[in-house]
Amino acid sequence: MLRIFIAAFVLLVSTAAHSGEVLDRMAATVNGHALLQSDVDDELRYEFFAAKRPLSEASSEDQKAALNRLVDQELLREQMHSKDFQPVADDEIAKAFETYKADYGATAWTAALTSYDETDADIRSHIETELNQLRLIDLRLRPTIQIDAQSIRDYYQQQLLPKLPPGQHLSLQEATPTIRELLIQQKMNEALESWLETLHSQAKIQHFIAGDQVK
């Protein structure tokens, strides 16, 4: 962003029409917390960075999806204020960041940062947010999930066995931990949908339509 100096500083209170370039504006509010257009842009850039998609392909649907993700993130962030939640430690974040960077590819990393106007700190911040959310979801939802033996058996017989390559053998006992975790993750995804619906219904959320200027 071009660095500019603040030469004059005015707070307009009411209906004066103004024709300056809009640098940033409100995109939504969640329980009194403001989500700005720049936040939506950041989220969009990170998503495209992670997917290695060119930014030129970003559409208004992608913008909306990014804003909805930010709303969900804000609702989850409000849940992190409870005393039983411990945020992810710095070393864990650092380790995850290094892993992510290694997976991305060292040579592609620097160019991508420039291309998507991101920095290491920005990416690290996103990773921290994701890790905290995963921890919160695990803390809240995992204790509510029960997987019975019959479900594991059904999955083993109906899903796993048919997909095993010929000649490969995996017993139920060996497969049980993996199947259990898989089923837990599936149920947690369903539970997460339901939980987010509940949080949405209880929250005060206001969207500001893109293109509407403050008059």
């Binding site: 500019i4 100096f5 603040i6 030469a7 004059a8 500083f9 005015v10 707070l11 307009l12 209170v13 009411s14 004066a16 103004h18 300056g20 370039e21 809009v22 640098l23 940033d24 504006r25 409100m26 403001a34 500001f208 200027q213 403050v214 008059k215």
Partner: peptide, 22 residues
């Protein structure tokens, strides 16, 4: 509602305005 608007002059100085709805 709030938005930040900027008028840029030729010498790179800017007037920053916060337009608001009360």
């Amino acid at each position: 509602n709030l938005q930040a608007e900027c008028d840029l002059s030729a010498d790179g100085r800017a007037s920053l305005t916060f337009a608001s709805e009360l």
